[in-house]
């Protein structure tokens, strides 16, 4: 801001004077300069945001041995990445975690959002507060808290099950940190996201359709399946995909509760700390980016279609009234 005004102090005062005198809106040089400064600043920010990502992708096609030097283009490092057993195992783990976390978050978050419509305001405020906390609390605290909970719960649960387990069934199951605990810890955050999205959608929903359904003697269940659910679907899908994207490349929480399992971000993080850093990281990174971007692209498509439908509905309603 300071820059834009410092550039043109004197003409600016003149511009203001013309405006004050009731002349035509000022479109003089000062205005153009300020406009150009704003455009230039914004363009630089977009470059700042996108050049690093573009570089990661470009260097993934590097034929050379090091991530820092571009020596011709090749798909060599993609071959290395996909041929690496550990990378493929971590990718598989990450996909399992992301699918499970997104599915649980969407199911639990949606039914919670529906239920929260019917509870007393005081109770609703409590849940909204907890949802808010789950979203803003730093991931590192969620990670620690989950670790502390799981370790304590297992310390208490495993001996109990072990002592009660009938010997005829073989070894008693022992709970440990691993994929399920990563999913559980991720769901705390992703479920909160889904609750916020679905609640926002419910707030903007047309109640008359539900009432019409009851007037036509539909049962609550039928009304839910045929009226409410289709209207909620876009928010649920957006919540699902955002949860998926979050869970797929979350590092901090997973690093606390992963146990012996390794997700893709954890593998990437550890390889970055083990020089020399090869373009293999870039290849894996590009795969991660592609998966997240595809999910986000689908969210965007859904929202565009949804707003277009809403607009068409509103126009139709207006036309019907006229």
């Amino acid at each position: 801001m300071a820059r834009s005004t410092a550039l043109a102090p004197a003409p600016e005062r003149r511009a203001a004077a013309t405006a004050a005198a009731g002349a035509r809106p000022p479109t003089d040089r000062a205005t153009r300069v300020v406009g150009a400064v704003f455009r230039g600043h914004s363009a630089l920010i977009y470059l700042f945001l996108y050049v690093p990502i573009a570089l990661v992708i470009l260097f993934s096609f590097n034929a050379g041995d090091f991530a820092g030097e571009l020596r011709g283009l090749s798909l060599r490092w993609y071959g290395e990445a996909f041929g690496d057993r550990f990378v493929m195992k971590a990718l598989q783990t990450s996909l399992i975690v992301a699918f499970a976390s997104a599915t649980l978050a969407t199911a639990f978050g949606t039914i919670a959002a529906l239920a929260l419509q019917r509870v007393p305001p005081a109770l609703r405020a409590v849940y909204d507060g907890l949802t808010y906390i789950a979203i803003v609390i730093p991931g590192i605290v969620i990670g620690i808290a989950s670790l502390v909970f799981f370790v304590n719960a297992f310390d208490w649960f495993n001996p109990l099950v072990g002592s009660l387990w009938p010997g005829s069934l073989g070894e008693a199951p022992v709970l440990n940190l691993g994929i399920p605990t990563v999913i559980g810890a991720h769901v705390l955050f992703t479920m909160a996201i889904v609750i916020v999205l679905v609640r926002a959608r419910l707030a903007g929903m047309d109640r008359t359709l539900v009432e019409a359904s009851y007037d036509l003697f539909a049962t609550p269940w039928r009304t839910f399946i045929q009226v409410t659910l289709p209207q909620l679907a876009p928010a649920m899908l957006a919540g699902y995909l955002l949860s998926f994207v979050f869970s797929f490349d979350e590092y901090v929480i997973a690093s606390f509760v992963k146990g012996q399992d390794t997700t893709l971000p954890i593998l990437v993080f550890s390889q970055i700390h083990r020089p020399p850093v090869t373009p293999k990281i870039n290849a894996i990174g590009t795969v991660i980016l592609t998966i997240s971007l595809s999910a986000l692209f689908i969210v965007q498509l859904i929202y565009r279609r949804q707003t277009r439908q809403a607009r068409a509905l509103a126009e139709a309603a207006a036309a019907a009234e006229a």
């Binding site: 570089l55 590092y251 971000p265 990174g285 997240s292």
Partner: peptide
């Protein structure tokens, strides 16, 4: 909304 880790790796 895309990978925090990879964007930090870029820098």
């Amino acid at each position: 909304l895309t990978s925090f880790l990879i964007r930090t790796y870029a820098w």
